[in-house]
Design a protein around this nucleic acid. Structure first.
Lengths: 145, 145
DNA sequence: CTACCTGCAAAACGTTTGCAAGACG
DNA sequence: CGTCTTGCAAACGTTTTGCAGGTAG
């Protein structure tokens, strides 16, 4: 069993989340391919496996609450993606203003430097920052030509 | 006439947006007090002035398209706020995970440093970044005690 | 006067909820 | 076996749309 799956199972246990066929189907979607999904997309991907849209929403909320996945809002859209367990909770996404496509950004080293600035904000606003979500908007490689 | 108002009028002209009583009411809300509003809040604030909710949505979309205001999505909520015309299009917001309050962050110098990193992203992803939206999540000054 | 804008109400959309039937351990 | 979970359909809140009447220039 991989370390990742073990970690996921521990988190589910810790939150007293029992195992069901539907929850496993949804979770494996996130684990198999680490990308972002809309609730509706998940529903359609799992069509035929007998999972109602209400269950999709209920499961997503449950996984979010126990910190396994995170929610990203971009305009009218809402996505969910696997949450990085190991380290810094920083996420960078890019949305093309022309074609509307939405990309993840993975280069963690580049992102690292953002973190140092968080302390300034914490002091300025007298808050505790746990999560950083950076959304970039512009033109993607195809549309910018 | 202030430089700001002049600038706004020029942008409206440039986009061929004609003047109406309703559009003026909504725009002055943003200009008078530079904060973020939900469509519904605008509708309620202007209640009694005879502005339908459909007009609020249509006007917001129109002002957004011509770059006068910008949209911010946080979970289920959608806000609109005046867009900074002069310089860098960087916006930092903070949402408290406990009480749900949503704050603007204004310390531009602190934010400035974020900009340098954008170039790395542009090169990595082969995109052009026009807008940067940073959402921080954590505990606000009241809730963190 | 013409073209565009508006309010209204209905429709569309994403999300949530109540409930009876079913699955889990 | 009791409890928790599910699918369905209805309810909900937000956003969009069609249309007849009104407004701007």
């Amino acid at each position: 069993m991989s370390a990742e799956v073990e970690c996921v199972q521990k988190m589910l246990e810790d939150h007293g989340i029992t195992h069901t066929r539907q929850r496993e189907e949804i979770l494996s979607l996130f684990i198999m391919e680490s990308k972002h999904y809309k609730p509706d997309e998940i529903f359609k991907l799992l069509r035929g496996k007998g999972i109602g849209i209400a269950t999709v929403y209920r499961t997503l909320e449950m996984l979010r609450e126990c910190g396994l996945i995170k929610e990203i809002s971009v305009g009218k859209d809402r996505f969910y993606e696997l949450k990085n367990q190991e380290s810094k909770h920083i996420y960078v996404h890019f949305k093309c203003n022309k074609c509307g496509k939405f990309f993840d950004y993975y280069n963690i080293e580049a992102v690292q430097e953002y973190v140092s600035n968080v302390e300034t904000v914490e002091k300025d606003m007298n808050v505790k920052v746990n999560d950083v979500n950076i959304n970039l908007y512009g033109l993607c490689s195809k549309c910018k030509c």
